[in-house]
Amino acid sequence: MSDKQVELNEHGHELLAWSDDSRHDVDEADHYVLMADAIRDLLIEKGVIKAGDVREQLEFMDSRSEDMGARIVARAWANPDFKERLLANGTEAIKEFDIPMLDAELVVVENTNEFHNMVVCTLCSCYPRTILGMPPDWYKSKTYRSRSVNEPRAVLKEFGTDLADDVAVRVHDSNADMRYLVLPLRPEGTDGWSEPELAKLVSRDSMIGVSPATEPATEPET
């Protein structure tokens, strides 16, 4: 792997060229491809885990996606009681969707006209995986991890999200015990929409807090 290459930004600060933000050469990848197989086979042979355990885990991963999060957000937009419960105790509130949080607590943070929330895990890649699926590559990148906490507005701009100066940014640093979900602002012109209609406006990125929810293209037919 390449060593850190030194570059300077416009302020003369050293920039680190993070090596894990790029793809890897084939030889190295092959080693780890085989390592995963080797570990699985050894653990099954030794009776530590069963083949069925691995299959179950793979199926569980496949069953998780941002659609879960979109349903939660849509219900919070449509149902004030649920929203109140969700903001008070996310872990408890999502039980009605039959979504487990495994080891962690869920904290839901609401965007308003005064505050914009954004989620990062500076230490690694903690993320509400049971609600959003696996985190995107950029979320796990060292660039996002390092910069989000000291220049969130600049990072948001690179996502095309240009916040007004009078909107404060709150950055939430996730950890193994605490996972965050952003409740984005409900788009204008969606009064009376059903939960499934609203859910279509809720992107993964809006629940991480790097973009707003999708604006409705047209009014739905009534």
Partner: peptide, 22 residues
Amino acid sequence: PAGPMIIEDHEMEPWFKLLNAI
């Protein structure tokens, strides 16, 4: 400090998905 965001995402490679499952 770090460089500009590289906003990309890829399907998880099967071997890494397997490692996560393990």
